[in-house]
């Protein structure tokens, strides 16, 4: 594929400031308080000036776009190995025609009860298929990509997981990537 762009390419600035809704849950503060006896979870922080978000303009109309789904809710096929407890940077490839009944959820960082009832809460494959069927999007790029978030090591995400998922999305020739954390 020749020379690939590196992650975290810094280009022009021009970040849009945004105000948090007044009732947004302060997750960083609560995580620190809840797990104060453990080594602090280090959230990744990018200074908007020094490390602005990479930027690729959306040029293609949605109806002409193939959309790739990447989700971190710990969804996998019943036939696939579940995710592990900590620092699991493996991913699972989920065929686009998979029905919800074939999916399982393994994740230790959020309450998975509703996602186990209906993986569509965090893995909207059925919703995206419906949007493709009605022509709102051109289709899905596949297979869908799934992993388990809550990874302690930003280095492992940066050096292993992110480039691997990037290469898969590139190979799928997706026009837009839709990312769903949990």
């Amino acid at each position: 594929m020749g020379v690939r762009p590196r992650c975290y390419t810094v280009r022009m600035t021009g970040q849009e400031p945004s105000a948090a809704p007044h009732d947004a849950v302060p997750y960083i503060e609560r995580t620190r308080r809840l797990y104060s006896t453990q080594a602090p979870y280090r959230w990744v922080h990018h200074d908007p000036e020094a490390e602005p978000s990479p930027w690729t303009p959306i040029r293609r109309p949605l109806a002409d776009s193939r959309v790739a789904l990447v989700a971190s809710g710990g969804v996998h096929l019943a036939s696939q190995e579940p995710f592990h407890f900590r620092n699991d940077v493996s991913h699972r490839e989920i065929p686009l025609e998979t029905e919800n009944a074939e999916l399982r959820v393994t994740h230790f960082g959020y309450d998975v009860r509703d996602a186990r009832l209906d993986p569509g809460c965090v893995f909207p494959l059925a919703a995206l298929r419906a949007l493709a069927a009605e022509g709102a999007i051109a289709g899905l790029a596949g297979p869908a990509l799934s992993f388990m978030g809550g990874i302690y090591s930003a280095r492992l995400v940066r050096d292993e997981l992110a480039p691997r998922l990037r290469d898969l999305v590139l190979r799928q020739r997706a026009d837009l990537a839709y990312l769903v954390p949990a």
Partner: peptide
């Protein structure tokens, strides 16, 4: 981090 990595490779992300 993954969104930033994919976007930097030329595929828009949301």
């Amino acid at each position: 981090l993954i969104a930033r990595c994919i976007e930097a490779a030329g595929i828009p992300t949301v």
